[in-house]
């Protein structure tokens, strides 16, 4: 679409350069500890929620200021998704778009404000969950990835790796998988357990590709809870001094701009 020429838009581009610089300076200030974003990713039943809780308790005991955000949890969008999931009315595109909206709202309302305040944000699932599930539903990876732009890259991504069989066994040990969790919207399999097994196999295949592309830190989720936790502590200590990713500058600048926080 052609852009009608005008001064306000040109002024806004100049302002954006200034705001980008401010974002950069804030996150690379050597005199203060910066905010860190740590994502826990993995298939259902991989034990990441247990590990996330243990990790948070440990970080708090170590004196860090920690905020947790979970997948599909915004007060604004979650009720909309919940009501549509209940009646099985979502197509793969609608499913993808609504989760992306929920994510964007949390980025703007929870994640970036906390990072700006130099806190640690633990994300129980991040945009990679959307990518793995949406691509497993047949959507194009590039289309889905662009929905999440401007991208916010975690400082660390812990990927809890388990086999499809282990995921299926752990989930079905206590309950029947839900309709979308089992991928019944795309497998056309009536039995939720059988559908889950097929769908989670696709999801794990996508996760494993993403783990290579985006350099996740893989945690063997078949090991004991204690072993995994100590491994995560060690990996966090090694990773917390990583430099701030310049990739995040667009997302931070947009947030500063939209909320007027740059003033």
């Amino acid at each position: 679409m052609h852009e009608p020429p005008d001064e306000p838009m040109q002024r806004s581009r100049v302002d954006l350069r200034r705001i980008r610089q401010r974002a950069r300076e804030h996150f690379t200030d050597p005199s203060a500890r910066r905010g860190l974003l740590v994502a826990f990713e993995g298939p259902d039943g991989s034990g990441k929620t247990t590990q996330r809780k243990l990790f948070k308790t440990w970080l708090t005991a170590e004196g860090y200021d920690v905020v947790t955000t979970k997948w599909n949890s915004s007060d604004l969008i979650k009720p909309i998704i919940k009501s549509r999931k209940a009646v099985h009315s979502l197509s793969p595109e609608e499913f993808s778009l609504l989760h992306s909206a929920d994510f964007r709202h949390r980025v703007e309302q929870i994640i970036l404000p906390a990072l700006w305040q130099r806190r640690i944000v633990i994300a129980d699932r991040f945009l990679f969950t959307g990518l793995a599930r949406d691509v497993a539903r047949g959507l194009d990876l590039d289309w889905v990835l662009k929905l999440y732009e401007p991208l916010v890259w975690p400082d660390l991504v812990f990927y809890f790796s388990i086999s499809p069989a282990t995921s299926g066994r752990r989930i079905t040990a206590t309950r029947t998988p839900l309709f979308y969790e089992a991928g019944q919207d795309v497998t056309d399999v009536l039995d939720p357990v059988e559908s889950y097994q097929r769908f989670i196999t696709r999801v794990i295949r996508e996760y494993e590709s993403l783990a290579l592309i985006f350099k996740f830190i893989t945690v063997d989720a078949e090991r004991s809870i204690g072993e995994q936790h100590h491994h995560i502590r060690q990996l966090f200590r090694e990773g917390e001094r990583r430099p701030w990713s310049e990739w995040n500058v667009d997302a931070v600048a947009e947030w500063l701009r939209v909320t007027g926080s740059e003033v």
Partner: peptide, 29 residues
């Protein structure tokens, strides 16, 4: 979905233009 959004609690936070457009796309789908 916008009707539901319109009655959401103010404490849920206002959506940005980007979030609204993603929701527009969901409605269009």
């Amino acid at each position: 979905l916008f009707e539901e959004l319109g009655v959401a609690d103010e404490n849920a936070g206002r959506p940005s233009a980007r979030t609204l457009l993603i929701l527009y796309a969901a409605d269009l789908a």
